[in-house]
Amino acid sequence: MKRRNFLKWSGIGAVVALAGGLTARGAMAANSYYSGPVSDHFDGTHFFNPGGEEPRGTLDLLRWKFGNGNIPWPDTFASPFPQAVPETRVTGNRLVVTMVGHASLLIQVAGVNILTDPVWSERASPVSFAGPKRVNPPGIRIGDLPPIDIVLVTHNHYDHMDLETLWVLEGRDKPHFITPLGNDAIIRSKVPDAKITVMDWGGSETVAPGVVFHCEPCHHWSARGLGDRRKALWAAFVFETPAGKVYHVGDTGFHEGVNYRAAGSKHGPFRLANLPFGAYEPRWFMKAQHQDPQEAVEGMQLCGASFVAGHHWGTVKLTDEGIDQPVEALFAALDSRGIARERFRPMRAGEVFDVPA
């Protein structure tokens, strides 16, 4: 893929953003991404988690980054699976998930090809020369993708919204982009002619016969610069399909299971949930924004998911834990609850999961 620097950032700005503690609270009084009515999760300028927590600020960021809890990753972490060449379409009662890396998944169901938070760039960063670098290549070469119908962007952090990749996909397939409030403005800065459906929590959109996307709450936050903290919405999504329901969570803190219970009550049970279970240490800093493996397993049970495709681990180093620790902790959590390990798969790049009916 042709690399372009789509934003001009200072080195220190990139470090601050990637650390997850953007520091210029209120640097921009207005919201340049979204203008809409006040709601239970929007105060007229900023989005927020009802009854939840804001991400931590500058002093805590420095305390974390200058602490001694970091476990280094290897430069490479090869997947045991070769790069996949997916089927063109999956129909009938089949539901197939192929791991690209981190939170990028190809979901094929009911004849529809869906990409979640697609990132093919080498770094999850606003610049090409610094920031978290992938330790394995994408599990699918971008040229081997089937025609993409839907691109789902759950929020605007750099490990989930890669404008370069979105630009390439637009030129390749002209897909239908679905994203929460405010993120359309960011996408259009790079992909001005994109077809975008913008959704608030509680919204829904029919994308194909029998295939409906529902936008639901998760506990997270957003920012791409020093002045746009929480000015675009974050969300989880439910895909209602003839082959069953899929619950997709790109990033979330556990939030005492509030959102899992709500999703299960409103939409469950689910044939499949795509749940993050990595990037969680240290807990005192990350708890509000990233769940750990034990919480992910509890979330699986609370929402009523038969199977889980586990993601958000083993591709780019964002936090302190070692590269294998999420899987070790996941298996321990499953074993302690008597859940078969096959039901919650820690997906590796190139892995293909043909989800049981």
Rank of each mutant, 00 (worst) to 15 (best):
Ala29Pro: 05
His102Phe: 14
Lys174Gln: 01
Gly338Ser: 03
Ala288Val: 05
Glu122Ser: 13
Gly182Arg: 03
Cys218Arg: 01
Gly143Phe: 00
Ala332Asp: 07
Ala273Gly: 10
Glu281Trp: 00
Met99Lys: 15
Leu181Lys: 10
Pro346Ser: 04
Gly253Val: 04
Ala288Pro: 06
Glu170Cys: 08
Ile140His: 05
Leu115His: 07
Glu298Trp: 07
Gly20Met: 04
Gly210Ile: 07
Leu106Pro: 04
Val97Ala: 14
Ser104Lys: 06
Val168Ile: 14
Gly143Pro: 00
Arg63Leu: 05
Asp193Pro: 03
Glu205Gln: 12
Val109Phe: 03
Lys174Asp: 06
Arg4Pro: 05
Arg63Val: 06
Arg348Tyr: 13
Pro346Thr: 05
Gly350Ala: 11
Val97Asp: 05
Ala110Pro: 06
Gly20Arg: 11
Leu166Trp: 12
Lys133Asp: 04
Val16Arg: 13
His255Asn: 14
Asp228Val: 08
Val207Ile: 15
Ala29Ile: 07
Trp284Lys: 00
Trp9Tyr: 13
Pro326Cys: 06
Gly67Cys: 13
Arg230Trp: 14
Leu95Tyr: 02
Asp335Ser: 14
Asp162Tyr: 03
Phe81Ile: 01
Asp200Lys: 09
Val85Ile: 14
Gly20Gln: 11
Ile140Arg: 05
Arg343Leu: 09
Pro217Trp: 14
Ile140Gln: 03
Pro55Ser: 10
Met199Gln: 06
Glu328Cys: 05
Thr165Lys: 07
Leu275Gly: 05
Ile187Met: 02
Phe254Gly: 00
Leu226Phe: 11
Ala333Gln: 08
Glu256His: 13
Glu122Thr: 07
Glu328His: 13
Asp162Glu: 03
Arg123Thr: 00
Thr98Lys: 02
Phe213Pro: 03
Leu302Asn: 07
Pro293Tyr: 04
Arg25Ser: 12
Arg172Lys: 12
His248Pro: 02
Asn49Tyr: 01
Gly202Tyr: 08
Ala340Pro: 03
Asn31Gln: 10
Lys245Arg: 15
Ala305Gln: 13
Asn68Ala: 15
His157Ala: 09
Tyr260Thr: 01
Phe239Gly: 06
Pro346Cys: 12
Thr88Trp: 11
Pro242Val: 00
Asn136Asp: 09
Arg141Pro: 08
Phe77Lys: 06
Gly131Arg: 02
Thr206Ser: 13
Ala340Ser: 15
Gln301Trp: 09
Ser336Arg: 09
Asp117Asn: 15
Val327Thr: 11
Val308Arg: 05
Gly310Cys: 10
Leu330Thr: 08
Gln83Phe: 04
Pro346Lys: 02
His220Trp: 09
Gly225Leu: 12
Ile150Ser: 06
Arg271Pro: 07
Pro74Met: 07
Glu87Gln: 12
Val212Pro: 04
Pro209Thr: 15
Pro356Glu: 01
Asp354Arg: 12
Ala340Asn: 14
Arg172Gln: 02
Met347Lys: 09
Pro126Arg: 07
Met161Phe: 04
Val100Asn: 03
Ser336Pro: 02
Arg134Ala: 11
Ala30Ser: 11
Leu275Tyr: 01
Ala78Val: 15
Asp292Ser: 00
Leu59Cys: 10
Val352Ile: 10
Gln301Val: 11
His220Gln: 10
Leu62Ile: 15
Asn113Gln: 02
Tyr280Asn: 06
Leu106Lys: 12
Phe353Asn: 05
Asn259Lys: 02
Asp173Ile: 00
Ser35Cys: 13
Glu328Tyr: 10
Arg224Met: 15
Asn274Glu: 09
Arg63Lys: 15
Ser79Val: 07
Asn93Glu: 10
Glu281Gly: 00
Glu328Gln: 09
Trp221Pro: 00
